[in-house]
Design a protein around this nucleic acid. Sequence first.
RNA 1: CGGGGUGUGGUGUAAUGGCUAACAUACACGAUUCGGGUUCGUGCGACUCCCGGUUCGAGUCCGGGCACCCCGACCA
Length: 488
Amino acid sequence: MSKAITPKGADYAQWYLDVIDAADLAEHSLVKGCMIIKPYGYAIWEQMQKVLDDRIKQSGHQNAYFPLFIPKSLLEKEAEHVEGFAKESAVVTHYRLRATKDKKGIEVDPDAKLEEELIIRPTSETIIYSAFSKWIQSWRDLPLKINQWANIVRWEMRTRLFLRTTEFLWQEGHTAHATEGEAEREARDMLAMYQNFAQEYLALPVIPGQKTEAEKFAGALRTYTVEAMMQDGKALQAGTSHHLGQNFAKAFDVSFLNKQGEKQFAWQTSWGVSTRLIGGLIMAHSDDKGLVLPSAIAPIQVVIIPIWKDDTTKDDMIAHAQKIAGMCAVRVHIDDRDYLTVGEKFYEWEKKGVPVRLEIGAREKESENVSVCRRDTGEKQVLAERDLSSRIPDILNEIQGFLFSRAQEFLHSHSHKITDYEAFKKALDERSGFFYTHWCGSSECEKKVTQETKATIRCIPFDQKKEKGACMVCGADSDTIVIFAKAY
RNA sequence: CGGGGUGUGGUGUAAUGGCUAACAUACACGAUUCGGGUUCGUGCGACUCCCGGUUCGAGUCCGGGCACCCCGACCA
């Protein structure tokens, strides 16, 4: 039997993270709150990168790279922004070390104090827009659409593997436009891109919507988000897209002369997704046996386990496996290690979430068949070799579809409509999930709920009928429905 | 930074104040197996977080420190 780690109590997240560790994806490094992403985990990230990078370029953005260090004076230019990130910034104050007096160690050289401290980027708006301000002079320079793949440091009090690490990897898009409408469309388009990516590739159904004033990005006009639900019913913010308005443009003088020769401030957006998505992927699809990866994102889509009796048949069977691999025409791995038993290999690849496993031994070879096992359902079948090239892609698609519809069904069955605050509090104790309620729009009501229940407004979903109701908290008239949930 | 908890081989655990700190797993080697984690043997591996105290005797009790975990405040 598998060494399943059964989830205890409410902390499913920790359980999944244990599974991750067991699955060799990542571990906490010696540096507090930072993580080491192991090769297999990184391969998942690379798959995501590949798809996202393509889409970002297809929509007219170019990749570029900006410094890791941000001068303090830059960070403080946008008032809301600095307030939002000040409490979680890592600061470089010196540029040199020296040997200690006893020559046994090293210490910071006090003579090497920087005149101006450098902040390790918690996000790159400030440094990118100070560049934008030089790059943009004319309406002809717009729109400017840049993307950066980078690492980020946010010194959070509390970290959780993949979901909230001190350092993380992400993609951040930054654009400047001539008009508000254009920027708005950009912000919405990129959110739609994230939604599509999450659903098509990660098999992760998400709810797109707008963040409230309290939850929006520091310095933004509006923040859009896609919210996913994990298997314990908690919400995970899977991606955000911000319409920054002219806030940063004014702070960094990102301006241009329009066709009439008038000076205008640009309208800007920024948007990003991070390695948190790996965490989301794990927490949405994993089971007791470990990870379950959607076909579209799995670094290895098909693993082939050749089975041999002795050394004389071994090479033969591996050669046969290579032939079979060629027929599959997808990302295939042949596990030809001879120091593990077949059973051990099965467990290992199940733990790593490989969607399809092919078993080939004397039995299959003789009959020109292949045994196929699906990771998601555990279902086994026998396929003829000649059908592989057509059936393997089918099966991978079926798995992708199955994972998505299973997650979607979960999302629906854990979404509740609530009208009464007391009922809401009670429901929050009894069951998990998304709670759709009317909200008057006041931050007082929002704050009250958050303080009393720990649930936050995840978003104001785009998709809603304008129906009249009463705010769950204060009873005032409301025509807005929001999602309350506990979040990671 | 507040409240709670825990520190024992790489990992997970055990050990009334009392023999050489035990077991599992992992690792190494040798056999044996090999179509779902085979079995057996041998071996490697711990100043029981640090400093001090009580005691004939401390992994265990006491004091201090440090580290980590959980719960809050903060957050992608």
